Computed example of a mutant assay.
Amino acid sequence: MRPGPTNSMADVAGLRVGHAQRIGDGYRTGVSVVLAPPGGAVAGVDVRGAAPGTRETELLDPRNLVERVHAIVLTGGSAYGLSAACGVMERLADAGVGFPVAEGVVPIVPSAVIYDLGRGGRFRATPDGALGAAAYDAAVASAPAPSSAPAPASAPSSSAPSDAAASSAVPGLNGSIGAGTGAMAGGLAGGLGTASAVLPSGITVAALAVVNAAGSVLDPDSGLLSGTRYGLPGEFDHVREPDHDEFLRWQPLKAPSFNTTIGVVATDLTLSKAQCGKLAGVAHDGLARAIRPAHTMVDGDTIFAMSTCGRPGPVDTDLHDVLAAAADVFSRAVAHAVLHATGRRDAPAYLDVFPSARKRA
């Protein structure tokens, strides 16, 4: 396998990703949107955490009517943040995109939240429809990845949020952006991370993870970020195990009482709703490899899966290869989220806590 051109969710042809965030005036939170192609994407979901905050997940049951979704929203704000999906839904409806009904369309926008209340100082400073619309606008403005570009560690992000209260977009594909703006991970700064893989068959698999975990993202014996063990050649060459004494000195602050890691895994291989559900389930294996413990009573761990149906339906080998890649890609996305997160007083960055983990040239 090799990473896609941008090593991000955008490497799945037809998908676009946008972020918006608010920092200051009591806010430290944001919204991320994964936009499906114009005809929508087949989707599934797997909810493993005991404290989820979600919207429209029941529609993704293979027994139910709707076959395709038009966007997936990941947001901060706990249950309050679900209102961000309304802004995305309004934008899609204005563009005429949605499930056709007699008088128009109804956009299908499944969503999941993390608990980041109070991270900026005000408990009710949460995402709303305007911030969701800003993330949608950023996704629409994002350019498709060039097929021949190298795979960078980071690249320019989508355009700034459109409403005046939103902060400017943060450069980079990973870190304290979008829904990961206020995230924490086992006492460290959490964030948003993304990664991709192109299989020998040409099929692309990608993941986007918002890491706000109660569990630790560190190997308990070494302090290395657990997700880096699944990196592709060269991907995490700039990181090594920290000095053992440095690791032993690390005493994280007491973790917050509510958390959640959420994300999306996607492929261009044609899958059914049931197969997308399986893809989401296998991606949870990658979550559990990178975060321990996972799926706790105070986590709402939720992963969506999307198929753009850009390639013919799977033979058994294709499906198995995609499932295997999904777990590794999600682990890598978790590692990128933490490595690129911006530290703050109550949640230091990984490389600030463990400076010896940064390899020197």
Rank of each mutant, 00 (worst) to 15 (best):
A283I: 12
T204C: 12
D243I: 09
I262F: 11
V205C: 08
V282T: 05
V170D: 00
V239H: 11
T267C: 09
L208E: 06
P256L: 14
A283K: 03
P242Y: 07
Y230F: 14
N259M: 14
S196E: 02
Q275G: 10
G172Q: 04
G223P: 07
H284S: 12
L253Q: 15
V264Y: 04
G172Y: 08
V205N: 00
I262P: 07
F247S: 02
G187A: 12
A283L: 10
L225N: 07
D221S: 10
G277S: 13
L271E: 03
L271M: 13
A195H: 09
L173W: 01
I262L: 11
V210G: 02
G277Y: 08
F236L: 02
I203W: 06
A185W: 00
S222K: 08
G182P: 00
S257M: 14
V211M: 07
G187Y: 14
A280N: 01
P220Q: 00
K278E: 15
L232G: 06
A213N: 08
L269V: 12
A207Q: 06
A179D: 03
R229G: 03
V217R: 01
V198H: 02
F247P: 01
K273H: 12
T270H: 11
S176V: 05
V239M: 07
Y230M: 07
V211Y: 04
L253A: 15
F258T: 04
V265G: 04
D268W: 06
L248R: 00
A189D: 01
L269G: 05
L253K: 15
S201R: 11
G172T: 01
G182L: 12
D221L: 11
G182Y: 07
A195I: 08
G175C: 05
T270E: 13
S257D: 14
A266W: 06
R229H: 10
G191C: 07
R240S: 11
K273V: 10
A179Q: 03
V265I: 13
G231T: 10
A207V: 13
P220A: 00
P233K: 14
A195D: 07
I262C: 09
T194R: 01
C276R: 01
A214Y: 03
G215F: 03
D268Q: 10
A189F: 03
T267V: 11
K278Q: 14
D221R: 09
A266K: 01
